[in-house]
């Protein structure tokens, strides 16, 4: 692993590619033969109701969940055999902030930097905290931070290892306007730097504005996808609101 993961990964076709991916949980099928691709240098917005499979899709892409069937290429690496490579090149922000409440943001990030084996861990931790605008809170316990500030630190955590593929699961939730602006700038920076961003959101207007492409998940399947510029936000929200839309 001498080369930076971003460089190595960028040689293969897509930032994220799913072919025929299915995953069933005890009660229901979360994903039903999903085909989806997010090209390098772009952002993909995922829309869908609660339970449509957005979170499962992102967790599969982050190698947190093993699919029952299908192929996943994350940052150009096949899951699960090349999971370690894929993990080193993927950043993920989930619903939970994945921070230890009794440690400070700085301690949290230094811990994760060591866990990822980053050579410049302490410097990098300070860097992402500054970018996230969380410098002032760096040495208070996470427990004492507001939800919005915790979320910013969580985003900083996902950026520690300079991921080529960034996966965001409803990242807007709990963020103030400033935090949303930070997040948008992060996503833009990753996409413009040649990486790929995939994010799930309920906010269709904002999502389309931030993305290059979009996909709509319904009932574990990709119901529609296309270019964000040509998408009709009203039609997408109508479809999601329709009685049969996501059940």
């Amino acid at each position: 692993m001498d080369e930076r993961p971003a460089k190595r990964a960028a040689r293969s076709g897509y930032g994220l590619e799913l072919r025929g991916v299915s995953k069933a949980y005890a009660a229901a099928r979360a994903l039903r033969s999903v085909d989806l691709a997010a090209p390098w240098g772009s952002a993909l917005a995922l829309f869908g109701r609660n339970g449509a499979g957005k979170s499962t899709l992102l967790r599969v892409a982050a190698a947190l969940v093993k699919p029952d069937a299908g192929e996943v290429l994350a940052a150009g690496f096949t899951l699960p055999p090349q999971a370690a490579n894929a993990r080193a090149a993927t950043g993920y922000v989930g619903h939970r902030n994945m921070l230890y409440p009794d440690l400070t943001p700085e301690e949290n990030l230094r811990f994760y930097a060591r866990l990822y084996g980053l050579p410049d861990g302490e410097r990098r931790a300070a860097e992402v905290l500054r970018d996230a605008g969380a410098e002032r809170w760096a040495s208070r316990r996470v427990r004492a931070l507001s939800n919005g500030m915790q979320k910013r630190v969580a985003v900083a955590r996902a950026l520690l290892h300079r991921p080529a593929l960034l996966l965001l699961d409803e990242p807007d939730a709990g963020l103030d306007a400033q935090g949303k602006a930070f997040l948008a700038s992060v996503a833009r920076a990753v996409a413009e730097g040649g990486g790929a961003v995939v994010f799930a959101t309920h906010d269709i207007e904002r999502g389309l504005a931030a993305a290059d492409r979009y996909a709509v998940l319904q009932d574990g399947r990709v119901a529609a996808q296309g270019s964000a510029a040509e998408a009709d936000a009203a039609a997408i929200s109508d479809a999601l609101a329709a009685p049969g839309g996501g059940a």
Binding site: R87, T90, R96, N97, M98, L99, Y100, L115, Y116, G117
Partner: peptide
């Protein structure tokens, strides 16, 4: 409970 197990599992560490 704190969701940090996912943080551990996300890392490339074995």
């Amino acid at each position: 409970e704190r969701g940090t197990l996912d943080g551990l599992r996300l890392a490339p560490a074995p």
